[in-house]
């Protein structure tokens, strides 16, 4: 049986109270296994970002529980949560991903250093993470000297560096052109195929297409998901229009 990396057990999030109460996320059940890439789609205000914030321990549910790597986030003290964010969870956002005063290598090494790793060892791990995303030669570049696609690849390398196994991404391909966006998605896919887990919020259907499962949110509720019967869609493509007669 597959290991569950992320579990929403009836977790919800409300803001305000009384007449101004807003249910950003209604009680939600969602389970994501090791090796899975799950895309979350839905209109603005449907609860995508709230869901991601709860999964990443950046926010706490109003009711229900969120488990990451088997641990109930509510049971962790602030210090333990900080450790969880450094060691287990990686984040990639559309913008403001990298610290501009640090090189690519230093950006990736930073969470490891904060976690008490020796500088030389952190740099070594950063280099191998950069190598994995095909940017070994650019280790000494600053973010401003990298293209948008390269910056996102560095951000992904950082999100998976060390022991981190759960990546949470909010529109990571948002500012990229189609070809570069695909490079980023192939990279996420490669990591998930190697046993990592990723939850990706996107409005871009062609990028969500790389996911094993697409979850649809509406008004704070999961209304549907794809991937119930992947075999059914795996048949050879055979329903093409026939060529017109000569």
């Amino acid at each position: 049986m597959s290991e569950t990396r992320l579990l929403f057990d009836g977790a919800s999030r409300t803001f305000g109270s009384g007449r101004t109460l807003v249910e950003a996320l209604r009680p939600t059940h969602l389970s994501v296994d090791a090796g899975e890439l799950v895309a979350i789609m839905g209109p603005s205000g449907s609860g995508k970002t709230t869901l991601l914030a709860l999964a990443g321990a950046l926010d706490r549910p109003s009711s229900g529980k969120v488990f990451v790597a088997g641990q109930d986030l509510a049971s962790l003290r602030p210090r333990q949560l900080a450790v969880m964010r450094r060691r287990t969870i990686g984040y990639v956002f559309q913008e403001l991903n990298l610290l501009p005063g640090l090189t690519a290598r230093e950006n990736i090494a930073l969470p490891l250093e904060l976690d008490g790793m020796r500088l030389s060892q952190a740099h070594q791990q950063a280099d191998s993470a950069l190598d994995e995303v095909g940017l070994f030669d650019l280790a000494n570049r600053f973010p401003d000297d990298l293209s948008g696609g390269e910056q996102q690849r560095v951000a992904i390398a950082r999100a998976f560096v060390g022991s981190r196994r759960l990546l949470l991404a909010d529109e990571p391909t948002g500012a990229l052109d189609s070809v570069t966006g695909e490079v980023v998605m192939r990279l996420l896919r490669k990591h998930c195929d190697a046993g990592h887990t990723a939850v990706l919020v996107t409005h871009d259907a062609s990028h969500a297409g790389w996911a094993d499962r697409v979850v649809f949110l509406r008004d704070g509720t999961i209304v549907d998901e794809t991937g119930a019967s992947p075999d059914a869609t795996e048949r050879p493509i055979s329903h093409w229009p026939s060529p017109s007669s000569p």
Partner: peptide, 20 residues
């Protein structure tokens, strides 16, 4: 609209698997 969206998305996922 929603059931069509799921169906289209599943088709898109299948195309992407072929591309991979």
């Amino acid at each position: 609209l929603q059931s069509q969206r799921v169906s289209t998305m599943e088709r898109l996922q299948a195309y992407t698997r072929h591309k991979r």
